[in-house]
Design a protein around this nucleic acid. Sequence first.
DNA 1: GGACTGTTGGAGAGCGCTCTCACAGTGCAC
DNA 2: GTGCACTGTGAGAGCGCTCTCCAACAGTCC
Lengths: 342, 342
Amino acid sequence: MTDTMPRAAVPTLDEVALLAGVSRATVSRVVNDSPRVSPEARAAVRSAIAELRYVPNRMARSLVTRRTDTIALVLNEPNTQVFSDPFFASIVRGVSATLADTDLNLVLLTAQDEREQEKIGRYARMGHVDGVILMSVHSDDPLPDILAEAGMPLVMCGRPFDDRAVSYVDADNRGGAEVATAHLIATGRRRIATITGPLDMIAGVDRLAGHRAALAAAGLQSFPQLEAEGDFTEAGGARAMESLLGRDPELDAVFVASDPMAVGALSALRVAGRRVPEDVAVVGFDDAAVATRCDPPLTTIAQPLADMTPLLTELLLRQIEGAGEAVESRVCRTSLVRRASA
Amino acid sequence: MTDTMPRAAVPTLDEVALLAGVSRATVSRVVNDSPRVSPEARAAVRSAIAELRYVPNRMARSLVTRRTDTIALVLNEPNTQVFSDPFFASIVRGVSATLADTDLNLVLLTAQDEREQEKIGRYARMGHVDGVILMSVHSDDPLPDILAEAGMPLVMCGRPFDDRAVSYVDADNRGGAEVATAHLIATGRRRIATITGPLDMIAGVDRLAGHRAALAAAGLQSFPQLEAEGDFTEAGGARAMESLLGRDPELDAVFVASDPMAVGALSALRVAGRRVPEDVAVVGFDDAAVATRCDPPLTTIAQPLADMTPLLTELLLRQIEGAGEAVESRVCRTSLVRRASA
DNA sequence: GGACTGTTGGAGAGCGCTCTCACAGTGCAC
DNA sequence: GTGCACTGTGAGAGCGCTCTCCAACAGTCC
C-alpha cells in the first residue's frame, strides 16, 4: 500500500477541467465564484470537483495572488503563564469568531524569546500570512520593528510604547485606572496602594499613570512604597499584595491592574487576616469571568472586549485590502463594574 | 509614498543571481546549503542576499517541494477555559521548544465548534501544513477522521477512543490513576470519591477506569454517588467537590483527575470546613506548577511531559519524512509525587 | 447585411522556486 | 594523448494556479 501510493493522488485543476470538459480557466472561475460562467459549465465543474474531491492547492494560488488568506495572532510573551490570562483567551476567541464567517484562517504564534520572535518575523516575511495581530508587547520586543520594516500589515493589541505610526486597538487603560482609583477615593479610602502590571508593557504603564492621576486630582500624594509591580498573574498578585502589606500595614485600599492579580491579592489579604472590603477595598481591571466567582466578587474595570476584537480584525483587514492605507487606531472606553470588593 | 510603492519590492532569486553574477540554480544551492558550491560563489551569493535582504518566497518553494515546513498544533476544544490549563500550556511550550532548533514553524489552531474543525481540516488539506498534532480530542470530534482521510501526517496527544490506526503519545492515565487511588487506600482511606475529567475525553475515561481498578483490587466497591464528573477546570472541580460532599458527607478521600480541578476541590473543602489531609485526603493528577503552590501542597500524579513533547514531535516528523511509515505510539509512565494533601 | 455590444470560454504567460540534466573544467591513472 | 571520475555551474522544465488577452458566437440596431 505504501509503495503503490507514494503520495496521495491529489487532483489538480487540469484534471477537473478534463473531467468537466472545459478549460482550466473555467474551472478557476468556478472555484473563485466569477460570474462569467454559464450555469451549465458551472454545474459540470461543480460535479467534477465533487467527484475528484478536489481541493485547490493554496501554495500555487498564493504564488500568483500574493495572498494567503491567513492572518497570524502573535503572542509575544516569555511567560507561558499568559495562556492562563483570561484576557488573552477572550481575544483569541473573539478574533477567531470574527473570522469564522470569512474564509480567512487564523493561526496563533507564540514567541517565548527573541530567537522565536525572529523566527516568527521570518515566517511572516516568507509570505505565510497576510497580516499580523500582535499581542502582549513588551518595551524591548524587536518584532514590531521586524514586521513594520517588512511592510507587513500589522495591528497591535495595545498601543505602542513610542509614538510610531502603527495601527492599534486599545482599551482606555489610563482612563479606566483613573476611574478605579477615583472610586476608591470617593468611598473614603486614603491610603491607596496599587499593584501594577509589568512596567515594560504599555498596559502596565498606562494603568499606573491613571492611578497616579486620580490620586493627584484628589490632592493625595502617591508614595513609591504603595506601588508594587506584578506580572498579570494570580501568583504575582499575591506576592505583590504581601509585599505591600509588609511595607504599609495600614493601607486601606488597593487598585490592582488585572483581575487575575486581584484574585491573588484577595487570597493574600485573606491570609493576612484583612477583610475585604471592610479593611481593604480592592478594585481590579478586566472584568474577567473570575471577577464574579471570587470571594468577595470583584469591583473592577470592564474592558470592552466585544468591541475590541472585531475592531482588531477590521483594522487589519482594511490594511490588507488597501495596501498603503493610512494607519488607524482606536481606543475603547472602559467602565466601572461595581461588585462587593470596593 | 503609498503610490510610488504599491507593494514592497521583494527581491527574487533572479535578482540575487544577477547581483552575485551567478545563475539562479547556484543561488538556490546556497540558500539550501548544498555542498556543491565553490567558496567564492557562495560568498558572492551570501553578500548579494544580505545586500538585497532577500528572503525566499515560501509559497514558490512549497509549490515544488510539497513541503511547508510548518506543523500545526490543533486544540480541539469548545471551552476557552482550556487555555488556562497548565497541561496545555506545557505541551505548547514543549513542542515549541523542540522545534526551535529546527527550521520548522509551529502554528496553533483552535477549533471551538464543528464548523471551525472543518475549517481547520480544509486549511490542512490545502497544504498549509506538513503535519498535525491534535490535542484535547472529544469522542465525537470529526477532525481526526478528516485529517486521516486526507492522508495528513497526524499524531494525537492522548490515545483515540476507538482502536484506529493512528499515532499517539499518551501518559499512562489508567496506571497513574490506579497508583493514586491505591495510595489513598494504603493510607487507610476507605470512602474514596473521585472527580473525573470529562467522560467524552479519553483521559477522563482512563483515569476513572484506573481509580475503579484500584478500588476493585483492594476489594472496595465503587459507588456512583462517589463519582462526580468535572471538566478539568478549577471551577468545575470546586462544583464537583461540593456535589460529592452533599452526596456523602462522610467521604475521607478524593482522587481528582487534574490538578486545576484539585485546587478547586481544595477550596470547596475549605469552605465546607474540612481539613486536608486530616479529614479528607486529596490526590491530583498532572503535577502542574500550581500543585506546589496550593495549600496544602498537592500529592499528585506526575505526567512525564518532558518525555512526551519531544516524542510527539519526533513521531510526527518521522511520519512526515517517511511518507507511508508505520503508525507508532507511545505511552509514558506516570509517577506518584507525595506532598502534603494525602 | 454589416457593425457593434455583450457574454462565455480557451490559450498561454507567468508567479518564484527546485531540481534534473548536460556540460565544461580539473585531476589522475593508464 | 585518451579515458574516466568528479566537481561546480547553468539552462530549462516544470510545480498548480490566476488572469490577461483574444476568439467565437449570439443578439441588437441601423
